[in-house]
């Protein structure tokens, strides 16, 4: 052994506080976590594929969703009509993807409204607490105690069925769970020390809400959104199925299921494709939601 090995090391003492791990941002971290969940990845792929076909699927076929052709009614799948035709000879490939697009649009719009109302309402209720919170919670309880189907039916009788009215009708009661999630999160966060630190620095309510509370509720909001989109699609389908939804030749997945169901015994494929698509959308969003929960939930952090 060399004598030099036992000489003291000369060192720069300023470099004591150093970081060895490479920089990983919050979203990057979440993405690594999400990626490692095979089910969630599969769900995300389903949704991307479905959305791709919903918005661009019509260009793979020469037919549109509304033209009737009484010479080609109730056909099975063929090279012309990939999914066959319905009882008025409309191409089911075009109608199914158009329906999926409308269903998704309604769901996105409804959930966007949920987020807007829910975050505002829940945020204010949780942040100010006390009497404000009490009053706002009573409002939520009253809304919750009215069966939402009745509210939606009344809404749709008053408004003409269409994309926007259905989305509005869905979010009339749909924002309540979102408000509850945001309120719970804000209640939890506002007593955390970093919020106290901001308060003792003299930060305004607005600043605390926008810079400290809101960014920390994004995770739960995204998780909740990923579960409320499929439930909005399902509810829309249900409304259309009971005849409260869009009117033909407009189509949504619910409308198509309703039409297909009438000829179930003769032409089962007319029901099969829209029903399958609804199931895949539900499954995809739920799988993805689970993955997002694992990826964004701070409790999982080590």
């Amino acid at each position: 052994m060399e004598k030099e090995s036992f000489q003291p090391i000369q060192r720069n003492f300023l470099s004591y506080q150093r970081l060895e791990r490479k920089q990983v941002g919050f979203w990057q971290d979440a993405w690594y976590r999400f990626r490692s969940n095979k089910g969630a990845l599969l769900g995300a792929i389903f949704i991307i594929c479905i959305m791709f076909f919903a918005f661009f699927g019509s260009s793979f076929s020469q037919y549109d969703y509304y033209s009737q052709n009484l010479l080609e009614v109730d056909q099975g799948d063929s090279a012309q009509h990939y999914f066959g035709t319905d009882s008025l000879g409309r191409d089911l490939w075009a109608r199914t993807w158009y329906g999926a697009k409308i269903s998704l649009l309604i769901a996105f719009l409804a959930v966007a409204l949920d987020v807007l109302i829910g975050v505002t309402f829940g945020g204010i209720s949780g942040y100010f607490g006390g009497r404000v919170d009490d009053t706002m919670q009573r409002v939520i309880e009253i809304l919750y105690s009215i069966p939402n189907l009745i509210v939606i039916i009344l809404m749709l009788m008053w408004l003409e069925p269409g994309i926007i009215p259905i989305a509005v009708a869905l979010s009339i009661t749909g924002w309540v769970p979102m408000a509850r999630i945001v309120r719970a999160q804000v209640l939890k966060l506002k007593s955390q020390e970093f919020v106290l630190a901001a308060r003792s620095l003299g930060a305004s309510h607005r600043r605390i809400f926008i810079r400290h509370l809101l960014p920390n509720t994004v995770g739960p909001i995204i998780i909740s959104v990923s579960f409320s989109i499929p439930s909005a699609i399902f509810f829309e389908a249900f409304l259309s199925f009971i005849g409260l939804g869009l009117r033909p030749p407009q189509a949504s997945l619910g409308v198509l299921v309703n039409e297909g169901y009438r000829y179930l015994q003769l032409y089962p494929h007319q029901l099969l494709w829209p029903a399958l698509l609804i199931s895949l959308i539900m499954l995809g969003f739920n799988l993805m939601g689970d993955g997002l929960r694992d990826a964004l939930d701070p409790k999982m952090k080590r």
Partner: peptide
């Protein structure tokens, strides 16, 4: 001084070398 090493990339030599006031050349090898 300093803080304990990150065990994701554990040091090959003496783990305490970066905080040790008496560290020698060999400690880092």
């Amino acid at each position: 001084p300093g803080s304990p090493p990150d065990l994701l990339h554990p040091p090959k030599a003496c783990p305490y070398v970066n905080r040790c006031l008496q560290a020698m050349v060999i400690c880092d090898q």
